[in-house]
Nucleic acid binder design. Structure first.
Lengths: 135, 135
DNA sequence: CGGGATCCTTATGGATACTG
DNA sequence: CAGTATCCATAAGGATCCCG
């Protein structure tokens, strides 16, 4: 496939031009890192390296599938480091990489915002729900 | 008596999950801002109040369903304000509230992180994918 | 113990049609 | 114009079994 590059390029260019939204790797990354379990996982890992089963016990509610899947994604993105110790019962530890820690710091900022403004949000919801049927 | 088992266990698990997150509204907020369209919408609204159809045209790719749904959620949470002007063709404007703006700022911070570290992430991925099949 | 593979349920999102 | 309602496709997530 070499003859079509022109139109294909144009499509691609248009998609890239709309970097404001989908197609943009940054946005993909944003969605990735704000994954349902990724945040909790990274928050848990801020306390230091932990074993697979420890994480599973600590998060309590995550399935091993999602635990593994999320861990794999984070590892692949260079946010988490996986260390295997080939002892008799295999031992695997997970830890935040420096990159992962820098992101975890940001999560903390969001966490702070949430804790600081959650009341306002809740109040807004109550106000909204109360006035829903009112005229 | 077997109408449950599976669903009951799931409920139980979810209860435990909620209990674990009780003092942690952070994740709810994280999930909220990581919504597929919420981020784009708030980013778009940073340029000032805009009409429903303008937003739909600007985001271009969002369905009315998701546009309305996301807008409603943001409004309910007190992040966005909805203003109806009962003219002949009804006019509805949406704008960020101060609360919404403060969150949009945080969102930008995360976005900045993503843009700043996207290369490292991509490199990490390539490294990971390259060594995946190696033994 | 750690995790791959598989099957199944549910949440999410998009297209379409209709309304005030 | 600004929605609302409905149906449908897909993806996310979870339960279970099994293996190194």
């Amino acid at each position: 496939m070499a003859t079509v590059t022109a139109s294909e390029r144009r499509e691609e260019a248009r998609a890239a031009y709309n970097a404001f939204m989908k197609g943009c790797p940054t946005n993909q990354l944003l969605i990735r890192i704000s994954d349902k379990w990724a945040g909790l996982l990274m928050a848990a890992l801020k306390d230091g390296p932990q074993r697979y089963s420890d994480l599973g016990r600590r998060i309590a509610g995550v399935s091993q599938k999602m635990l593994t899947q999320t861990l794999r994604t984070l590892e692949r993105d260079g946010l988490v480091e996986r260390t295997v110790t080939p002892s008799v019962p295999v031992r695997v530890d997970y830890a935040l990489t420096p990159l992962g820690e820098s992101l975890a710091v940001l999560f903390s900022a969001v966490k702070d915002w949430a804790e600081e403004h959650i009341e306002e949000v809740v109040e807004a919801r109550e106000r909204y729900d109360a006035g829903a049927g009112t005229s």
